[in-house]
């Protein structure tokens, strides 16, 4: 609770800045409208107008909140205008990609830890792979996979996978190597096989590292899923809402999709945090 008030201060100042920026950015349009209608605005009228425009440059927080309420609670979930429906599409691609990325990451990490040749040849490329802006490749992956006949969830999930496997590889390699020399010697005294060392020493001691990487990975794979939805031509998903909003200048729609994506990311990370706490506690590794 020590940091409750500091966080509250920072968050509320962000909101204050947001409102001020909304007034400043939208005022030009408000004055423009008034000029054309031949009325002069008082300051308070101008402020009221800037916070209630239909296509503002920067919508005020309460406008976004109202839009989110309208498109989540008031719309049926099956409706194409429901944010929950779009969110679910993005979420399913995220989860599939995240699962694939985690699997690939763990397999690679196990290989890297156990084979020196693999460590030396693969690890540098894993690191290089992340300096490639993969999101730039997204449209190609989608179009090419479409041409081969794979469409729908999988192409997006592939992009998510590429973004999420890296933190898992790096974290798991660190984690699987974290048992110290003493523990490894103990295993050798017991004449344990490599497989035995893996199951009863390496894997359990890598768990804290795994969960830290999973948190980074799930956030990255959400980004991948959102970007993956853009080149398909704005059909469905949060990314499509962003793109459609930008085509038609619907700023409120863009912001509500953004806030939804942020909430989704936050809750995914929070869920992994809870699983981490429970697992580590049961394994006797809680901090």
């Amino acid at each position: 609770m020590r940091s409750f008030f500091p966080i509250l201060t920072v968050v509320s100042s962000i909101f204050v800045i947001w409102y001020l920026a909304a007034i400043a950015l939208n005022s030009t349009w408000a004055y423009d409208k008034a000029k054309r209608a031949d009325v002069t605005l008082t300051f308070s009228q101008m402020v009221a107008d800037t916070l209630a425009q239909k296509k503002p440059l920067l919508p005020a927080p309460h406008q976004v909140a109202k839009e989110i309420y309208k498109t989540t609670v008031l719309k049926k979930i099956t409706s194409k205008r429901s944010l929950i429906w779009h969110g679910w599409i993005t979420l399913s691609a995220t989860l599939l990609g995240f699962a694939m990325g985690t699997g690939l990451g763990i397999v690679l990490a196990v290989g890297i830890v156990h084979s020196r040749a693999m460590d030396m040849s693969v690890m540098p490329w894993v690191i290089t792979s992340q300096t490639i802006p993969i999101l730039a490749v997204a449209p190609m992956i989608i179009v090419v996979l479409n041409a081969v006949g794979v469409s729908g969830l999988l192409p997006k999930a592939v992009i998510s996978m590429y973004l999420s496997f890296f933190p898992v590889v790096v974290g798991m390699v660190k984690g699987l190597r974290s048992p110290d020399a003493m523990q490894m010697d103990q295993m050798r005294t017991w004449n344990t096989s490599r497989l035995g060392v893996f199951w009863s020493l390496r894997l359990p001691s890598s768990m804290p590292y795994l969960f830290t990487s999973l948190k980074i990975g799930v956030a990255a794979s959400l980004v991948g899923a959102i970007v993956g939805e853009m080149p398909t031509g704005a059909v469905a998903g949060l990314g499509a809402r962003l793109l459609a909003g930008s085509y038609y200048g619907q700023t409120i729609q863009i912001w509500s999709a953004l806030i939804c994506a942020a909430a989704l990311a936050a809750s995914l990370v929070a869920i992994i945090g809870v699983v981490q706490k429970v697992t580590l506690k049961r394994m006797g590794m809680a901090l």
Partner: peptide, 26 residues
């Protein structure tokens, strides 16, 4: 301020900020 900024910054760093792109283009 540091105690407030660190968690908020960590939170924002995990958000899909790329989504701001259409707004910035506007």
């Amino acid at each position: 301020l540091q105690r407030g900024l660190l968690p908020v910054g960590n939170f924002v760093a995990a958000l899909p900020i790329v989504g701001m792109a259409p707004i910035m283009v506007m």
